[in-house]
């Protein structure tokens, strides 16, 4: 094995992984960010993500169009998000427990309904070949940018604008920071929260679609590795800011690519340990960078 190739392969693979594996993190953390700005935590985004992945794949197989698959993922994720919002609007219901229930239900439904789609191949989403100029296949692979990634950048910008510059965003932040104030102002608390959790679920659904329709680009029961749950930690790290969600997602995508990249480069001894890197990273971030600045006041996490 020649040393010069290996030397470049690892950082290149980590860079590629940051974008490729970071896309699901980006969408699902944006979804969680929006949900939490309304004052609720939704662990059920993991269920929305898996359900989204299944719906996208199934939709693409049945219709022949990956875009219709993406739409199916948005609808499925949005419905699960809406359900979380509705159940949490009942009195004395714990949003974290509801999230766990929705995670179980979403994953169960996805496995149940997705059984017929494990075998067939779905048409994948297109990608931008930004590395076409290079003759190095590694570089080309690394610069093959998933069409959902720029969409994620747009979603970041849109959410930032919506939260800071629109009446809806201001009202949602008010609901998330102090329900009493929101009630005194006469804001439609239920409707605002429902819209935020439903949109959050839809974003998680897109994250699932990027798993099943781009990378790894298949549907099976081991597709998600808990991205929907880690999103909660990502949002803490991102201090509830959409743009910071982007950096966090890239960091986690890169960390997740470290294990396979090292294995490909011949470092196989601790493969599983390197695969745990994103989880260790999350835990470390939550333990040592856990200034709660920017946390919505109604959030159970900050109490």
């Amino acid at each position: 094995m020649s040393a010069d190739v290996d030397l470049w392969a690892v950082p290149l693979a980590v860079f590629a992984g940051a974008i490729r594996a970071g896309s699901p993190f980006l969408f699902v953390s944006l979804g969680e960010c929006l949900t939490e700005r309304g004052g609720r935590i939704n662990l059920g985004l993991e269920g929305a993500l898996v359900m989204g992945a299944m719906s996208a794949y199934g939709g693409a197989v049945l219709s022949g169009s990956p875009w219709l698959g993406l739409l199916a993922a948005i609808v499925a994720g949005g419905l699960l998000g809406l359900l979380h919002g509705l159940i949490c609007s009942l009195p004395r219901v714990n949003d974290i427990a509801v999230g766990i229930g929705l995670m179980l239900l979403g994953i169960g439904l996805a496995f149940f309904l997705g059984k017929p789609f494990i075998q067939p191949r779905a048409p994948g989403l297109p990608a931008f070949e930004l590395g076409a100029w290079s003759s190095n296949p590694l570089v080309r692979e690394a610069l093959r940018i998933n069409v959902l990634f720029p969409l994620g950048l747009a979603a970041c910008a849109l959410m930032h604008l919506a939260l800071t510059r629109t009446r809806w965003g201001l009202a949602l932040r008010c609901v998330g920071d102090s329900q009493d104030t929101a009630r005194a102002l006469g804001l439609p608390i239920l409707r605002l929260r429902l819209s935020a959790t439903a949109l959050g679920g839809a974003l998680a659904g897109i994250g699932g679609a990027s798993l099943s329709l781009f990378y790894p680009g298949s549907w099976n029961e081991g597709l998600s590795s808990g991205q929907g749950l880690m999103a909660v930690a990502l949002v803490v790290f991102a201090r509830w800011q959409p743009w910071r969600c982007l950096y966090a997602a890239l960091l986690f995508g890169g960390a997740g690519a470290l294990g396979p990249a090292l294995q490909a480069a011949g470092v196989t001894g601790a493969y599983h340990l390197f695969n745990a890197a994103p989880y260790v990273l999350t835990l470390a971030l939550m333990a040592f960078a856990s200034e709660r600045t920017g946390a919505p006041g109604e959030l159970r996490l900050s109490r």
């Binding site: 179980l104 169960g108 496995f111």
Partner: peptide
């Protein structure tokens, strides 16, 4: 499908909460 049990568990969990 073997996930039938998971679906039932999901409904059970939500019903208990709701």
């Amino acid at each position: 499908p073997d996930a039938t049990v998971n679906v039932l568990q999901g409904f059970l969990f939500l019903s208990i909460l709701v």
